[in-house]
Design a protein around this nucleic acid. Structure first.
Lengths: 188, 188
DNA sequence: GTCTATATACGGATAGAC
DNA sequence: GTCTATCCGTATATAGAC
C-alpha cells in the first residue's frame, strides 16, 4: 500500500539503515534518526514500538533489496561466471563507502555479535541470501560438490577485503584484491 | 616498576581489554570494568583520566603482547614458511573465542571506524606489527617485490575467515579455510 | 498522525571524606 | 590510594495535548 503512513515508515527505515551503517546500531540514537529523517522524536513510536523493532524492519528491508538486486542480475546475465564477477564488482562500485564505513552486512553482524543482540542471527539472513545465490552459480559451473564451500569462501574473501580497506582506508588495496578475485573466478 | 599501583593499573587494563573484546568498546561501561576488576568506580579515575585514556593503554598493552609473541616465534622458528603457518595457526588455536567474539583486532578497528574515534588509526598499529613481520617472512621467501601485498592479502584472508566464523558461529568453516591457507603458503 | 513534555535509567566524570 | 556520594548529560520510552 502506498499510503502516506507507509511512505513515512519506509523513509524512517531508509534513514535508520543509512545511519546504522555509518555510525553503528548501538551508537545511533533516536534523536539522530529523527533529525536526519525530519520528524519529531515522539512521532517515532507511532511507527516502531522499540529500537529493536526498527532494527528488525531495517533487516527485512535490506533482505528485500538484496533479493531484488540478485533477481535483476539473473535476468540481465545468463552466464554464472559473469554473475560471480558482478558480485565481486560490488566492492569496486562501493569502494568509497567501504573505505569509510566497511561492509554494511559484515560490520552489522560483527556489532550485533558483541551486543549479544536478540536479532544477531536474523542479520545473517543477508549473508544467507548471497550464499545460496552464489552456491547456485558455482553449481551451474559444475562445482556441485563444493558449491557451498566455494560460496562461503568467496564471502569470506570479500569480507576480509572490505574490513582491511576500511581499517587502512586503502582503496588501492581493494582494487588489487578485486583483480585477484577475478583471476580466481576465471580459473575455476 | 612492579609497585602495587602498577600491578593494579595493569590489572585494570587486562580486564578492560577482555571486556572490550567480548562486548565492544562503546558498549562496555566503567561499571562493567570496575565490577569485573573488583574495584570501585571512583577509584578508576586515579589510574585513567578518561575512557579514551584507558583505551589508549589497552592498545599499547596489545601492541607489546603482539611484539613479544612474534619475537618468541622468531627465536623458536628459523624457517619463514614455518612462521607463516604459525601465524595462520592462531585461527585454529583461538577458534572458540573467534567463533564467539570474532578477531580482537578486526572487530575493534571496525567499531572505532564507526565511532569515528580519535584513536581509530592508533588501533591500526596492531595490524601494522603483523604486517611488517609478515612482509619480512615473504621477503625471506624471495618475494621481495610483492612482500607487502602478500602480507596484506594474508591479513585480509584471516580477517574474512574470522568474521564469517563469528557470524555463522561455524568452527568447521574456519578449519577448512585454515587448510586452504596452509596450501596457499606451501605453493608460494 | 504529529507534536511537546516528561518519566526513568544509565553513561562518563568529579568532589571530597577517609 | 581507595572509597561513597553526586553532578550532569543523554539514552530509550511514555503520556497526553492537538
Amino acid at each position: 500500500m502506498g499510503t502516506k503512513a507507509d511512505l513515512n515508515r519506509q523513509h524512517i527505515i531508509d534513514t535508520a539503515d543509512n545511519l546504522f551503517y555509518r555510525q553503528g546500531f548501538d551508537h545511533t540514537s533516536f534523536s539522530d534518526i529523527a533529525d536526519a529523517a525530519g520528524i519529531a522524536r515522539g512521532n517515532f513510536y507511532y511507527y516502531f514500538k522499540t529500537k529493536d523493532d526498527l532494527l528488525a524492519a531495517v533487516l527485512l528491508s535490506r533482505n528485500k533489496a538484496i533479493k531484488d538486486m540478485l533477481d535483476g542480475w539473473d535476468k540481465q546475465m545468463p552466464d554464472p561466471r559473469q554473475r560471480l564477477n558482478r558480485y565481486v564488482q560490488i566492492l569496486t562500485n562501493c569502494q568509497h563507502e567501504i573505505k569509510e564505513f566497511g561492509c554494511p552486512m559484515g560490520s552489522l553482524c560483527t556489532e550485533l555479535a558483541k551486543l549479544r543482540h536478540a536479532l544477531q542471527f536474523n542479520a545473517n539472513d543477508m549473508f544467507e541470501i548471497f550464499r545460496s545465490w552464489l552456491r547456485e552459480q558455482f553449481s551451474l559451473l559444475g562445482r556441485r560438490d563444493d558449491a557451498d564451500q566455494l560460496a562461503l569462501h568467496l564471502i569470506a574473501r570479500s569480507q576480509g577485503i572490505a574490513l582491511v580497506a576500511n581499517t587502512y582506508q586503502d582503496a588501492a588495496f581493494l582494487e588489487r584484491e578485486v583483480k585477484e578475485l577475478n583471476r580466481w573466478i576465471a580459473q575455476l
